[in-house]
């Protein structure tokens, strides 16, 4: 029987990761954090429910919204910790030369490392499934919405993974790579929101629209627009009314912009891993 052929780097990473108590510690912490927030959220809503101010389905819906944003934020901040040491760790351990001497091309090394980081995210998502079972118990959410959420979370993990890998390949030290990854993610999440808010305040006075609002396409939270179309509807109107009327949504553009940024990061990482691309050759 033909053996399933997977990237040997991915197989090795999974083997090492699953032998490490750190992984189980991280999963436990993740679930404790997410579950703890969910319980707190439910308890605060429980009083509204018992007072008759809200229905069970509404509470379920609200809990789902809360969980989706919480998981989104947790994953986007977890990925740099998982992918930030992917290549810099090999440099620190002095194993990068041995790795590049094999038949693994720089692209396969980078994609193998990315797949290993994503596999950990998939583990976290699967581990959190029982929490979504609780949401289903309350009602107000369809399985398709949960599926959409998981696709969004995996997408954002993939994007953040590419960005973190780039820093991991560029820096020799893991700490520097992780700090740079967090700085970029914080800028994309917070920086773009602040710029957008300032621009909104200015244009509100002048009653004008500006393409500078497109800064929000760099915000990973924009991807949640697929799940919550009303969430960022106004942004695309502010940029161009025609686009909005034709059905173009902010998350379409965000996926395009952030996807391009991730592809560029992957290319930079691949070049940085290739020892023969570093430095110029004459003659």
């Amino acid at each position: 029987m033909q053996r399933l052929k997977i990237n040997p780097l991915l197989a090795k990473e999974l083997r090492i990761r699953m032998r490490n108590w750190r992984t189980f510690g991280m999963v436990s912490l993740y679930l404790l954090g997410l579950g703890g927030f969910a319980v707190l959220f439910f308890l605060t809503n429980f009083y509204m429910l018992s007072g008759g101010y809200s229905t069970l389905a509404e509470v379920g819906r609200n809990l789902f919204s809360f969980l989706s944003v919480a998981q989104f934020i947790l994953v986007i901040f977890l990925v740099p910790a998982l992918a930030g040491n992917a290549i810099s760790g090999e440099k620190e351990r002095q194993t990068i030369d041995l790795l590049t001497c094999t038949q693994l091309t720089p692209l396969r090394i980078v994609t193998g490392k990315l797949a290993a980081a994503l596999s950990a995210v998939i583990l976290f998502i699967f581990a959190s499934l029982p929490l979504y079972g609780f949401v289903f118990l309350l009602g107000g959410v369809s399985p398709l919405e949960v599926l959409k959420l998981f696709v969004i979370i995996l997408t954002v993990a993939l994007l953040a993974g590419c960005w973190s890998l780039m820093f991991s390949a560029l820096f020799r030290r893991t700490v520097a790579a992780i700090v740079a990854s967090y700085a970029l993610i914080l800028f994309l999440l917070g920086g773009s929101s602040i710029i957008f808010t300032l621009l909104s305040a200015i244009t509100m006075q002048t009653q004008s629209s500006t393409p500078l609002f497109l800064i929000m396409t760099m915000n990973p939270l924009s991807l949640l627009g697929w799940l919550y179309p009303d969430f960022f509807r106004d942004v695309i109107y502010a940029v161009n009314t025609n686009w909005a009327q034709r059905g173009l949504q902010l998350w379409h553009l965000a996926l395009l912009v952030q996807g391009a940024l991730a592809a560029l990061s992957l290319w930079v990482a691949t070049r940085a891993v290739n020892p023969l691309k570093v430095g110029k050759r004459k003659g």
């Binding site: 040997p8 090795k12 032998r19 351990r93 194993t95 790795l99 094999t102 038949q103």
Partner: peptide, 21 residues
């Protein structure tokens, strides 16, 4: 050179062997 400390000796060689095609 460094090694992957969490691998066993045969796993270590299997990894590099597979990575070498």
């Amino acid at each position: 050179f460094g090694v992957y400390n969490d691998l066993k000796v045969d796993e270590y060689l299997e990894f590099y062997g597979e990575a070498s095609g």
